[in-house]
Amino acid sequence: MKILIVEDDPTAATTLSKSLQAHGMTTQIARDGEKALAAISENNFEVIIMDRMMPKMDGIEALGKIRNQGIATPVLILSALGEVDERVEGLEAGGDDYLVKPYALSELIARLNALYKRNHSVQKSDKEWMVAFGVKLNTINGKVFRDDVRVQLQPQERKLLEYFLRHPNQVMTRKMLLEKVWDFHFETDSNLIDTQISRLRTKLDKPFSKALIHTIRGKGYVFAEDLSSIE
């Protein structure tokens, strides 16, 4: 995965760059918005990490210019600000995800993977049915089947499953699931997601021979048939 890191703090940029390289990614650093635009015109990146606060041209402005040039590369905005409207502002400017500093590296990597795969995965499901590993979810009436056996789910559990079906084989952090399933964008120690996962497993995995929801220790959860393909 080829990543452009747009970050004005040199220490933060090199630390991040090294960490990502250690996870098998290729990185390039741009120190401000203008340099980022230049780098993008020269190279093709798969994901851009954009710092929100930068001198000269801030992240939002740079993002606007990137989108104006018709470049659709997924952008993850990093910010030290955490207010909800700042997040909304970032996403409205064309950002694809938003992460507040300080963050755990595993959180960032999970999100980068999600952004990368979103751009590269082929949509297998049609409009009515979302399908993966023998699990089917009818997006119209909400009915769920596994191996053609009806599974009864609560609305929030169905939302969780829907998100898993959209992102098979991807590590999802608790934070990501809280954001996507609950639309909660705050820090919490609550076991909300873990409890939901546990209930979903009871209903979707336990009655069947093969488990599909897996826990990746220290990282999050993944919806997959075969864990060996997950990095």
């Binding site: 909800v84 609950w182 639309d183 909660f184 964008h185 705050f186 919490t188 120690d189 609550s190 909300l192």
Partner: peptide, 15 residues
């Protein structure tokens, strides 16, 4: 109100 804040408050009280 602010849904994020209200949810956070409720979760804190539940916890």
């Amino acid at each position: 109100g602010d849904r994020q804040l209200l949810a956070q408050a409720m979760i804190n009280l539940f916890e």
